[in-house]
Design a binder for these strands. Structure first.
Lengths: 169, 169
DNA sequence: AGAAACTTTCAATAAGTTTTGAAAGTTCAT
DNA sequence: ATGAACTTTCAAAACTTATTGAAAGTTTCT
């Protein structure tokens, strides 16, 4: 198989996965491209490889920097900016978990805390039942938050090591 | 606070979270509505509560059944179908993980396995570097898959119990 | 200060996704 | 076999999100 073809396959597949998880397809593709690139790439390289406009490239590169998945890299004698991906995927995954937890889980958690400490007006029995459900969901969400925090704080060994001992007991 | 208002807040917030994770907003809202409903609801109840069309309600209820997050419920003497949510969120979460793993992680894993056992044509050094990157990503993806499988198989106690002992050691 | 090299912004447009609603399909009771 | 009750389908419309490209902005060099 041609190397170029294999690269495209990797980039496409990574893009599809991203879009299924609510991440802009182009952003995932830029990430994929940088992941498999040894050399730091500049905006023009990325535009050319992925066939996208300058604006689109710029916006998605900024987003990746923002997530901490890509770093700026300056080459001596070159004026433009180059970019490299965080190549350690465990580090990258932890950043994604941390960030999504903050952006997407915490607002729900806040809503649940608020509802949990509010008194409702309405049919007494219905209020009782609703409060019970909210409390259940809150417990679950807090537990999930705790689990994710633990993962973010844990080190590579935990991830690389066997998980067998962690479950079922 | 009015009970009705609180219900809307819960439903909206759950809908936003879903959409951020690549799940149709209406589907999350139907799920939220069923989660906080003691009684089983029929299509018309859901249409009325969420102000959506019959087609939309039907399509999203089917999807939730498909994910195993909602069950059909028949009421004696009633001809129409009623629906209830799986109220145990740990059970629901495991189903979601299992399903997303299958639908969204496994295709990437397959791509990585294929690329990993393919010889590439092209500049020798570039091929070597690309293969190394693919191997790295594959290792990470397999490890993630293993971790998720463990979670899916683990029991509630593991989730409810303290995670402290699991990390950092 | 001016010009070149580069990055960012943003309004217009394109692409993609979701929703609707009416028609077709199904099931069940008589 | 018919009709009422209910569910499913699907093409068209509405809505949302992503992308473009040209203009504006910034930085660096002489």
């Amino acid at each position: 198989m041609e190397l170029a073809e294999a690269r495209q396959q990797f980039i496409q597949s990574w893009g599809v996965m991203g879009s299924q998880w609510g991440i802009n397809r182009t952003m995932s593709q830029v990430h994929a491209l940088l992941l498999i690139s040894e050399e730091a790439l500049c905006a023009d390289d990325i535009m050319a490889e992925l066939n996208i406009s300058r604006g689109n490239a710029n916006m998605n590169i900024r987003a990746l920097l923002d997530w901490g998945l890509v770093y700026k890299h300056f080459k001596a004698g070159e004026r433009k900016e180059f970019f490299v991906a965080e190549k350690d995927l465990w580090t990258a995954a932890r950043k994604v978990i941390k960030e999504r937890k903050k952006r997407e889980l915490e607002p729900v958690l806040d809503m649940l805390e608020t509802l949990n400490s509010t008194e409702f007006t309405g049919d007494e029995e219905k209020v009782r039942q609703f409060s019970k459900r909210v409390a259940d969901v809150r417990t679950f969400a807090r537990q999930s938050d705790k689990l994710l925090s633990g993962i973010v704080k844990s080190d590579r060994k935990w991830f690389l090591g066997g998980f067998a001992r962690l479950f079922g007991k």
